[in-house]
């Protein structure tokens, strides 16, 4: 790094690459969390919920968190407002 680089406040391309990767990798990991069946499970849960309430796929959030040796699979369904 020469003296000119001290005047550069712009992010370096490597920093941009790292940020982009962190976002896309986190997103893709969340999508299957190492379990390929999760997207399918999410769709099937949607079908069951839809029997009772009108919801869309976007309203079902899947979270897989690790707690020590234990993995917690969490489904959050946002219900539409009651009329």
């Amino acid at each position: 790094m020469g003296i000119f680089s001290y005047f550069r406040s712009k992010k370096t391309s490597a920093q941009i690459a790292k940020n982009r990767l962190q976002i896309i990798v986190a997103h893709e990991r969340a999508e299957n969390c190492g379990y390929d069946f999760l997207p399918q499970l999410r769709r099937e849960i949607l079908l069951v919920v839809q029997k009772y309430v009108p919801v869309e796929l976007d309203h079902i959030r899947v979270d897989l968190t690790k707690d020590g040796n234990c993995e917690v699979l969490e489904f959050n369904v946002t219900l539409p407002e009651r009329k």
Binding site: M1, S5, T12, S13, A14, A17, K18
Partner: peptide
């Protein structure tokens, strides 16, 4: 190139 910020570092 890593030092110049043009390439992801091993830590990244």
């Amino acid at each position: 190139r890593v030092e110049r910020g043009e390439m992801l570092s091993v830590e990244d």
